Amino acid sequence: MHVLQVCKLVTLGITLVITMDPNLGKCEEISNTCAVISCGTHAHNGLPGRDGRDGKEGPKGEQGDVGLQGLRGLQGPPGKAGPTGPKGAKGPPGEKGQEGKSGLLDLEDLRTQFRALGGHMQTLQDNLEKQQKILLFLGGKKIGDKVLVTNGKEENFDAAKEKCTDAGGLLAAPRNEAENAAIQDLLQRDASQAFLGISDEHVEGLFKYVSGEQITFSNWNLGEPNNNKDAEDCVEILSDGKWNDIPCSLARLVICEF
């Protein structure tokens, strides 16, 4: 057999062995074998080999440039309070204040003021009694703590209220039988009817004094109040002392209480 044919056979055998057993296909062995038996003309290309193993890790590269600053993170929880600082030095004493008054002197001043106030109160009381006597002299009538007086004129309800308020009093409104009789007595001197300081202008059927309080005494005539034609919100007292509801626009005698 020729040498060329022998080389081809040997090469073919090696290739088959490598294909069947990958562990035998190392480059060093193939190279050594090929170095010994390579001869003759160039053979056909063999089958592709397997991927080689990863090489060893190379040396560490140089440090790169500093990157851009990232976004600011959320604020963390507050830390614990630190220890109390040392106490400061005591400051210099302040200027001395003015000497205060004795407590006995203050008490004596109060007594003096009370005596003066008592004198003013007595003067006011004397003036009030004097005014009451004048009112009685002019035809007024005293009943309990009240003084009743009339100006002898007839007005509608609003005008009558205004006259009494301007004089420092209120439109007369009896709160008991004795006051009702006193108003009746004044009425008989000047007229047959007079307004009372009572109405249900704000709430129908709820009669109140002009001072805003709900009435505590009444002396209605038989069948009254009847709010005739839904237009009777004011109250008149008749010559017999009985009450009747009437329109506020009518004119009646003005009697004030002080």
Rank of each mutant, 00 (worst) to 15 (best):
V10E: 07
V3H: 09
G61S: 02
C34V: 10
A172C: 11
P59N: 03
A172Y: 02
K60E: 14
T41I: 09
A251F: 15
N127L: 14
R189V: 15
G13N: 09
A182E: 04
F195D: 02
K96S: 06
Q193C: 05
K141I: 11
K142D: 06
G76T: 11
A173F: 11
D65Q: 07
V235G: 01
V17P: 00
F195P: 00
S239Q: 12
K90M: 11
V149Y: 06
A182R: 10
L71K: 10
N228C: 09
K96M: 10
Q188C: 09
K101Y: 14
Q69L: 12
G118I: 13
L16D: 07
T41S: 12
G91H: 00
E236G: 07
D65T: 09
G58F: 01
D185Q: 15
G85K: 02
G25V: 03
D65G: 06
K242P: 03
F114I: 15
P225T: 00
D106C: 05
A160C: 05
D230W: 07
V254H: 01
P93L: 07
Q132K: 13
S239A: 15
D51T: 11
G79F: 01
V235H: 00
A43S: 09
L117Y: 15
D240W: 04
G144T: 08
R111W: 11
G168A: 08
D245M: 02
A81D: 13
R115I: 15
C234H: 02
K56P: 15
L222M: 08
A172S: 04
I134D: 05
Q113Y: 13
V147I: 07
A191T: 05
K161H: 06
P22Q: 08
V17I: 15
T150C: 00
V6Y: 15
P78Q: 13
P225Q: 04
Q5R: 10
V3I: 14
